[in-house]
Write a protein that binds this DNA or RNA. Structure first.
Length: 280
DNA sequence: ATGGTCGTTTGACGA
């Protein structure tokens, strides 16, 4: 099962690229962020005719997330779900695809340390953890949840994940509080799949449009796929497609690159997960 | 020197 997560920075502006990428890579599950579409406008794109069932949580001008699946899509939820304080913005969708409980999330940016939006971001990450309990706690307690939380987290997990940590002192995305909230998700029982497969720094998923940052290799790794132990044990290939960040002015790229994860289907379905399979 | 460039839009504003 092939899964991709991609902040497309407007699905309308990126539709040609998204369709070409899907055709080239044949993903089974596609998690999108920043579609910037209403649910009606998303429905008119008719991904069903390309073989994908969909859930979209949109509000129009801003935000908007989706999950596309050609391996089944059950129990879709827009937002945190029952039992968690609802969000005023369209930043999260859940669905079960091919036996995996998948989330597509767009974590608030935070804007600046201490800003109202920063507190909203910290609270949002806590509610995402609460949402995990609601969406997958039963299976996790049973020891074998298949959960994959994908998206734009707007947090760089550690200093390897920014081009220059000194530049981010006093800024968002690397603060202790943000990293602690991200660690809270890992403590639930999730593993940073890209980091399991790649140990070097300087491997990024986002580059600012301004100042030629992409060509100067000034980026951050903020797009993540967090898998439960069962999913981590099944992940046999993880890639950031940085080529997709390139392109001409008349067909510009998103400022984020797609993150691709391949899961071995047999490993995914194994009845027990050995602690040998996956550190952490 | 604290910008740059995209997207939403036809104003600024968010990232």
């Amino acid at each position: 099962m092939r899964v991709v997560t991609w902040n497309v920075n407007s699905l309308k502006a990126r539709l040609g690229r998204v369709r070409r990428w899907i055709e080239a890579f044949s993903p089974d599950v596609v998690c999108l962020q920043e579609t910037k579409l209403s649910d009606d406008a998303f429905a008119r794109l008719d991904f069903e005719s390309f073989g994908y069932d969909c859930v979209h949580n949109g509000e129009g001008r801003w935000n908007g997330v989706a999950i596309l699946s050609r391996v089944g899509l059950d129990d879709p939820v827009a937002g945190f779900g029952e039992g968690v304080e609802p969000d005023g913005e369209a930043r999260l969708a859940w669905a079960t695809c091919g036996g995996v409980r998948v989330a597509s999330c767009y974590v608030p940016n935070g804007r600046a340390l201490g800003h109202d939006h920063y507190h909203y971001k910290l609270d949002w990450l806590q509610r995402l953890r609460d949402s995990l309990d609601v969406q997958a706690a039963g299976d996790q307690a049973a020891g074998g949840a298949a959960v994959l939380v994908c998206g734009d987290f707007n947090v760089a997990p550690d200093d390897r994940d920014v081009y220059d940590p000194a530049e981010f002192v006093g800024a968002t995305h690397t603060s202790d509080a943000e990293r602690e909230r991200l660690a809270g998700l890992l403590d639930w029982g999730l593993v940073d799949l890209f980091r399991e497969h790649h140990h070097d720094g300087g491997l990024f998923s986002w580059w600012d449009y301004r100042g030629g940052d992409f060509h100067k290799r000034k980026g951050m790794r903020i797009d993540l796929a967090l898998g439960s132990r069962r999913v981590a044990a099944a992940a046999d290939f993880v890639l950031i497609d940085r080529n997709e960040r390139k392109g001409p002015k008349d067909d510009p790229p998103s400022d984020h690159a797609p993150l691709l994860v391949d899961l071995d289907d047999a490993a995914l379905r194994e009845s027990s997960v050995s602690s040998m399979d996956c550190p952490g």
